[in-house]
Nucleic acid binder design. Sequence first.
DNA 1: TAATAATCTTACATTTTTGTAATAATACAA
DNA 2: TTGTATTATTACAAAAATGTAAGATTATTA
Lengths: 222, 222
Amino acid sequence: MQKILIVEDDEKLRKELEIFFTNNGYEVESLKTFDNTIQDILNINSNLILLDINLPGVDGEYICREIRKCSDVPIIIITSKDNEMDELLSINYGADHYITKPFNIQILLAKTASLMRRSNMEKVQDKINAGDFVVNLSNSTIIKNDKKIDLTKNELKILKYLTEQRGKIVSREEIMEYLWDSESFVDDNTLSVNMTRLRNKLEELGLKELIETKRGQGYILK
Amino acid sequence: MQKILIVEDDEKLRKELEIFFTNNGYEVESLKTFDNTIQDILNINSNLILLDINLPGVDGEYICREIRKCSDVPIIIITSKDNEMDELLSINYGADHYITKPFNIQILLAKTASLMRRSNMEKVQDKINAGDFVVNLSNSTIIKNDKKIDLTKNELKILKYLTEQRGKIVSREEIMEYLWDSESFVDDNTLSVNMTRLRNKLEELGLKELIETKRGQGYILK
DNA sequence: TAATAATCTTACATTTTTGTAATAATACAA
DNA sequence: TTGTATTATTACAAAAATGTAAGATTATTA
């Protein structure tokens, strides 16, 4: 169940929001005192924060920034001032959306749902979709159509590196540094060997000549 | 250089946007005819799309959904109707933001910048930041403070799985299915062994008793 | 408390991954 | 074309990862 944290001093509005979001299937928690706001907010592990920017004796902008230092939780700012500077500021200090009082609560609901959906999807994006194939980082596999092949740690790293810079030439030195942290001194030829191994697996998937050698310059993933 | 694609039939507004974004350091491309809109949009590889929802003879909602099928590019909807249904709809069919004409162009600039920043960060999120430690999927390592330890494929998968559901109890069966695809029939005890190995590495990092056994139920990452 | 079932630990054999060495192939310049 | 530097390939040995077996712990319940 998704949890929404409400940080709002106006008791009437707070209650209204609590009831509304509870009725719409969310778990709701809210802050009623504001003398230790940042700590309180960070202690409550929520999926979205509804934050009134004009709390008594609290710098809302500062709070927003502090939250952002520790967390990517979506933040919706509630403001009562309708001028544009407010909007600009809220964008700049890390909030994901703002609404001005009074607001339409159905729109707020749609926006919270949309932000949470996005934030959930962002959780761990561990697949690189390269169009003609997909690299799965946590399984260490490459998938094309319905064929799947396991990659070893080295093969995965090379392929990931090249895929991220698809279309660019990547030097052998760069790849070697990425592979071996330039700690242990590994023979230059070892890269060639690993390259061959990767290429063989790619060819098993029908990805022939995906990695092209640019003699004297490096490799390029086409 | 970031590229913005403008899809707007009002020539005056289109020109204005082109000039404005060009002056602000973006590469701008725009659609002037709308008889093959979806294909045109998909062919132009842009970092953000500014889409007028009321194009002559074109269903903007449909376009938006079609784009979403193929791409996660941020979409900002331009609408002239100021009623709420429009906003709700735009949220639901995949747009990231909407603006109503006439709009303040500085606010639009801020919003485009913010959406593009977010979308760029989303590219490959291959690290799980768990607060007290970080799991790096492409290196297959776990990092705490400045200490780094290599994880094997199995250890990584178990830790990833538990971390993603931190605070929840995860059954042994679930983990085993995740580890071995329920293809090969691996002994139940093998999980225990892998668990021990992972726990030993975690302890090397000072992460003692991070994974707790819930006898009869599974494991929980605290 | 004793019996039982669940989980843990350790040691070991097998398989996989990795790096190196020796040799081959290739592209490019003289 | 020939010589040279760069990259590729193959085979092999060392290292790492993995699964299994056997026995040890631990929690739960009768």
